[in-house]
Computed example of a mutant assay.
Amino acid sequence: MFHSSGHNHRMDVFNPRRQKEKVVIVMGATGTGKSRLSIDLATCFPAEIINSDKMQVYEGLDIVTNKITKEEQRGVPHHLLGILDPNEDFTARDFCDLTSLAIESVLGRDRLPIIVGGSNSYIEALVDDHDYKFRSKYECCFLWVDVSVPVMHSFVSGRVDHMVQNGMVDEAREFFDPNADYMKGIRRAIGVPEFDKYFRYGPLLDEETRARLLQQAVDKIKDNTCKLACRQLEKIHGLRNNKGWNLHPLDATEVFRKRGKDADEAWEKLVSGPGAMIVGQFLYNMTAEVPPHIGSLRVPAALAAATH
């Protein structure tokens, strides 16, 4: 495991011979494990995480927007997460401005910025800005956590059921406003407008009709989430195939087909281990083959030696 200490990390993590600072960007469709990978990487390398999900930037609706919990963050500093008033607009330009500030702040602490989230159009606006200032300042390593579409859709459906069990309906009810604009602020999030009819008419209806309205809302959330995942995937393919982004795919499909310890082992073998190796090579300009099993995200000896 790479352990950070009190000394200056920039000479370790960032090659002093290069002018560009280094940034890691973790991409993928909703529910594929982007946040989990970013945490794994941040416990392996001295790093801080910058959220690039345009709904998770808002305060509130933690279940609806599937925010990473404090426990899941494992002490890793997060930026642009739950900081914005729910009624404010948050544009791609706003994201670029705040993320640029966050990157400089993280680099100022001699840490690696890891940008993670599903708002790929915002990431594109950041990286491929009109005058290419971003690419002139930073060198990027793109990790793409991928899951086959049928497996992803099945998981998304189960995740929505789990969110409902964890209090999603009551959380969304607190934000219900019959005069709300679902095109503004956090109310654009999937899991808010779908409940409108249920919250609006439910109290006036009999129990059976009310239950049917609730199920229709949940089914619509599942459908819209699957459609979102497909759009995200299409966008990622476009960035790779049409714009030439050098994305490193990490196929997590087998992880989602397994359970318990087997799933954790598959995650280390197929996602977190190779991901750590790719980032290590990116940071230290080393070449090495990905071992079949890294286990507990231990940085390979060749990479670890480069840090001392």
Rank of each mutant, 00 (worst) to 15 (best):
V160T: 07
D161F: 09
N166Y: 12
G167E: 06
M168F: 10
D170P: 01
A172N: 07
E174S: 13
E174V: 06
F176L: 00
D177R: 06
D177V: 04
P178V: 01
N179C: 07
A180K: 07
D181T: 07
K184M: 09
R187S: 11
R188T: 14
A189H: 04
I190V: 12
V192I: 15
P193H: 11
E194F: 07
F199D: 00
R200E: 11
E208F: 08
R212I: 12
A217M: 10
V218N: 11
D219E: 13
K220T: 13
K222I: 15
D223Q: 13
D223W: 14
T225G: 01
C226E: 14
K227P: 01
C230A: 15
L233E: 14
L233P: 00
I236D: 01
N242Y: 04
N242G: 02
G244R: 05
W245E: 05
W245I: 04
W245H: 00
W245Y: 09
L247R: 10
H248R: 12
L250N: 03
E254C: 01
K258I: 03
K261I: 02
D262F: 07
G273A: 09
A276L: 09
M277C: 15
F282H: 06
M286Y: 03
M286V: 14
T287A: 13
V290D: 10
I294V: 15
G295R: 09
L297P: 00
P300D: 02
P300Y: 03
A301N: 03
